[in-house]
Amino acid sequence: MVSEGRKGFTMKPRNTTARWPWRAAIVAGLALAALTAAHASAASSAAVDINEFKFAPAVLTVPVGTTVTWINHDEEPHTVTSATGAFGSTGLSNEETFAQTFTRPGTYAYFCALHPHMKATLIVK
């Protein structure tokens, strides 16, 4: 059994401040996501597949008002996370989806928070 014994150990903790950079980003992302969803005009829809650690298509262009749905086909969890914090999913398990409606034109860079080398772009016109 695990005991709380400290036989033979000498711990040397020192004090510094803890920070949570992600929490603020995720909260901001969710707030913005709710905002844009409320203004959705439900005009059209599009899908992005996540396969083998890649967003496909890597660059997607959609008209304003489009609802984009991401589907994770990997057994590894992934996220859809805006580079600016404008929107963001939580961890998507195998075959889970995340949908977001885009009501403002712009170029939205996003990535996977768990695998930051997975990058893609959504262009809303």
Binding site: M11, K12, A18, R19, R23
Partner: peptide, 24 residues
Amino acid sequence: FLDGGKEYLGRYGKETVGGRGWQS
């Protein structure tokens, strides 16, 4: 990755340097 380490450090950070997870 979901919470910036909040839950992990809450459980395992207590005896680490400044509660940040590293230790010797």
